[in-house]
Structure formats: C-alpha cells, structure tokens
C-alpha cells in the first residue's frame, strides 16, 4: 500500500514535521502479520517521545472508529480522537497479509529518542497494545522486529 507522500506530510501533525525543519526523507514502513486465524487486524502506528508522551500518529489500519478503543494505548494517549488519523486511515489488515506504507518523515524524528509503537486488535481475540515498540534510529533501518501476538515482523527502510 503506497501512500501519497504529500498527503501524508500534510496530514501528519506538525509535531512530526518540526517547524522550520525542511529536511524530510521518504521512509517505508512494512508490517507483516502472522496467520493468527481471525478477522482483519486493526493497527495503529504512532510515535512517542523520549518521555513516553504521545507525539503523533503515522497510520491507522481499520476504518471503524468504534473499535479504536481496543487499540488501548493509542486510545488512551489520544482520547480516541479520530482527528489524529484523518486522511491517514486505511483498511484493516488480514491475517498473513502485509501492510506497506511510504511517508515523508522529518529527519529530526531519528536518533532523538523517539519510539514507534504499533497497537493491534482483532475482533473476538486479545487486544494487543504495544504489539511493537522500536526506537527510531538511523542504524535500525532495515532490521526486522517481531511483534508480540499478531505481527510476524516489522521494519522501516529509508
């Protein structure tokens, strides 16, 4: 799934595209789900700063906001505010399928203590907040990380 990068840049909150910093680079986020034997998974991809505070959302896989409460960390951090994912929302991701998003991320997000989180939830199965938590560091690009329950591997490439 390729995302119009202009749209992504516009849609991301200013926190991720720090004011006055024009430097940004395209980053591809690849999430592959394992065969967990359930319906499509809802995934929230978002970033927290060094203190663990919510900074902004990168992507929401899953269109029905009534189910967002099951992405419990994201939901508590944002208060379930759908404005956080306006324009960066896509379909839920089926078991065994892959979600690939490319967006322009500000250089300042890297090597500065920011962490990328993925919350996952599947209907009638366990909620899995913080399924993945990876620090955003330039060296970490291309290194796959395994999720706790639903995500077989996740990696970001620049």
């Amino acid at each position: 799934m390729k995302l119009n990068s202009l749209l992504a840049t516009l849609a991301l909150s200013t926190a991720l595209t720090l004011p006055g910093v024009a430097m940004a680079r395209p980053v591809t986020l690849t999430t592959t789900l394992n065969n967990y034997g359930g319906d499509g998974a809802y995934l929230a991809l978002y970033v927290t700063d060094a203190s663990g505070a919510y900074v902004g959302s990168l992507w929401m896989a899953g269109g029905k906001s009534k189910y967002y409460e099951h992405l419990s960390d994201w939901y508590r951090a944002t208060g379930g505010d759908t404005a956080q994912v306006n324009g960066i929302t896509g379909a839920s991701v089926g078991a065994g399928r892959r979600l690939e998003i490319t967006l322009d991320l500000a250089d300042a997000l890297f090597d500065a203590g920011y962490t990328l989180h993925i919350d996952a939830a599947v209907e009638d199965m366990r909620d899995s907040p913080n399924e993945v938590a990876v620090p955003l560091v330039t060296d970490g690009a291309g290194t796959p990380v395994t999720g706790r329950r639903y995500i077989a591997n996740f990696s970001y490439d620049m």
Binding site: K64, K66, G80
Partner: peptide, 16 residues
C-alpha cells in the same frame, strides 16, 4: 448505523 459511526454510542473512558 453504530458500525458506520452514525450514532453517538462510542465508549467513554475515564480521564488518564
């Protein structure tokens, strides 16, 4: 209608 968010029946969590 609830699934398509046409009703204000979303859950309310207590403040952090």
């Amino acid at each position: 209608a609830s699934t398509f968010d046409l009703l204000p029946d979303g859950s309310v969590l207590p403040a952090d």
